[in-house]
Write a protein that binds this DNA or RNA. Structure first.
Lengths: 346, 346
DNA sequence: TCGTTTTTCTAGAACGATTTAGAAGAACGA
DNA sequence: TCGTTCTTCTAAATCGTTCTAGAAAAACGA
């Protein structure tokens, strides 16, 4: 077994000091072109692939990567075009700064022991995507002294975030539904504990994420006379929306409108209606949040937000020194489509 | 400025050696519970967030992350549900092994200097997604001695891959189109150089990716009498398919069928037809590859492949020691929908 | 009680680079 | 010619861990 080729090996072979080899890679103007050429040639010959990433990261204190933290299991995150759009925007900026994106699974195991991905991750900064305020992973990152930007407004005034006014966004939708005469509302929410089992009805306290809570409050604000129930069919995914809506539609106590706290949930609800021969906007109204592409084709009323821009903005706050703003508010807009209509009288 | 809290600081404060602190985190059974408790408490008190990621990676030689390399710009990769599906499968397995996913932008800049992401990345292994065989980044990874798994079959017999039989997959579609009487075919391909400018017509040599080439050969095999032209509107994206198809449809020389080498390209072509009042499957046939969800709703004939499973399989080959197979062939299936029909006579 | 094994902890050397301060020689200005 | 400034290169310290080998103490068996 031949020992690994390091900067030292190359230095020896080229008859220079290790520092010079390092400079050949990192500071080309610190040495003569001739020597640099010789070093690079020798490196090639020895099969040296350039400075080791970990060693460089350790010594220089820069990892060249930003972490991305998702609420859900990673695999779920990819099933929501909203999350994917965010990622695309973030990736665009990361690319510009030749920085990699490190997707960290936040497995709930072994926080204390310290062997989880969030501890292990070699990152310079982190983007927090829809993670509940009190999540232990956030504490871990904070302890590590890693700069963070969240997609939710936190409580602390010194937190960085790129977000929308959740309450206002929901209020727009609430006003729309109230005007249409809806008094019986079911809100489909994301809930990890409901996953795998049957749908559950929750109280407002049991809804984990702050942003979800704010949206619900926004709806309540504009629909003071309405009865609002919270139901979850599991993770934030099409199938959860489907399951939850099926349960709601098959119950004795049907609402006149269903709001998904994300478009994928709402689209799941539309599917449930379809298989029951119900027409969205006529028999029952459905609305969502995010305005993903599929919402347009399905005719789903929703509250749009510039998701890719949100990703870009997070990237800028994280990576671009020229960006000094630490808290960015993005606009939202109610997009009315065919899936909402007047509440049927009975 | 207080100096950083390290394992040494904690050791001193707790009255033990650095090694013991390290063990407290990594090998709990190597020390008494009492001492471990004391160390962890002291660490908490000092605000020590656990062993530094880079240092650990350097010393132990494990980065706890696998790299993911995409053909396109990262942002483009997310616009194709096919790539996203792959990622979801890979993420699932990564999660299982508490490993992070490092998305590396492969900027074409400065390969020699070594400051690009592929060199910088602290990774233990890499997944190569649809990257052309000769790409310099692959050479870089190989030099670094990083195990790789590609989604394309390479030439070398010792390469690891998880792939489909591209030629056979295309042959299935070719046979289908030949039976329908198509003799004039345009194939939409991904081409970086066409991006930003107007669509271009390419020769088979100019198509960069091996898998694309194989698909085209597969079509040729079953359609020996057909004239097959290759056209690109840029990157692999809906908009490129749209642009390219518009150019084709508005030319003097219309084909009877258009095949996109990916569903997103084909869907772009369908959109182009729609705006021209042409009906897919009647006026002109369209087909794609991958069978992404949108293909189903659009009624696009396509060759399906189990994309999420492909991601999972790559993950297993990369991370799971129990998986010994290094080369995995996935099945494909022709899915006939409304977008293909008999070639119109003229 | 005494040797042996087991448990618990430590000293000190890696890991592979970058950085700081400075030496040696070349080039320069007057 | 001599002091000064560049240019080019190097020695040695350092980044924060983990690992190897072994010491000290405790537990054990007969």
């Amino acid at each position: 077994m031949s020992p690994r080729v390091t900067i030292k090996t190359v230095a020896q072979a080229a008859g220079v000091s290790p520092s010079t080899v390092s400079n050949a890679y990192n500071k080309p103007d610190q040495l003569s072109a001739a020597v640099r050429e010789r070093i690079l040639a020798k490196a090639q010959e020895l099969g040296y692939a350039g400075p080791d990433a970990s060693a460089r990261a350790l010594r220089s204190g820069k990892a060249g990567a930003v972490g991305v933290l998702f609420t859900d299991k990673l695999a779920y995150a990819f099933s929501d075009p909203y999350a994917v759009g965010f990622l695309a925007g973030l990736a665009e900026v990361a690319e510009e700064f030749t920085t990699s994106l490190l997707l960290m699974p936040l497995s709930s195991t072994d926080i204390q022991g310290g062997t989880n991905a969030v501890q292990q991750a070699a990152i310079d900064a982190a983007a927090i995507f829809c993670v509940a305020g009190g999540h232990p992973a956030l504490e871990t990152l904070k302890n590590r002294g890693i700069p963070m930007v969240s997609t939710d407004r936190g409580d602390h005034p010194d937190l960085s975030w790129v977000a929308i006014d959740e309450t206002e966004a929901a209020a727009k939708l609430g006003k729309h539904l109230a005007r249409l005469g809806h008094r019986e509302l079911v809100v489909l929410v994301d809930n990890a504990e409901a996953a795998g089992s049957r749908p559950v009805e929750l109280s407002l306290d049991e809804v984990g994420y702050t942003d979800c809570e704010l949206r619900i409050r926004g709806l309540q604000k504009e629909m003071p006379d309405a009865r609002i129930r919270l139901v979850s069919g599991g993770h934030n995914a099409f199938s959860s929306g489907l399951i939850a809506a099926e349960w709601v539609l098959d119950s004795q106590d049907r609402p006149t409108a269903i709001v998904g706290l994300s478009d994928v949930l709402a689209l799941g609800a539309m599917e449930a209606m379809k298989t029951r021969g119900l027409v969205p906007g006529r028999d029952l109204s459905v609305a969502g949040f995010d305005d993903i592409p599929a919402a347009g084709t399905a005719g789903l009323t929703t509250v749009s937000q510039p998701i890719k821009d949100k990703g870009r903005a997070v990237g800028r706050v994280l990576l671009d020194p020229a960006t000094t703003e630490r808290q960015v508010m993005m606009p939202t807009e109610l997009v009315v489509r065919a899936s909402t209509g007047p509440a049927p009288r009975n």
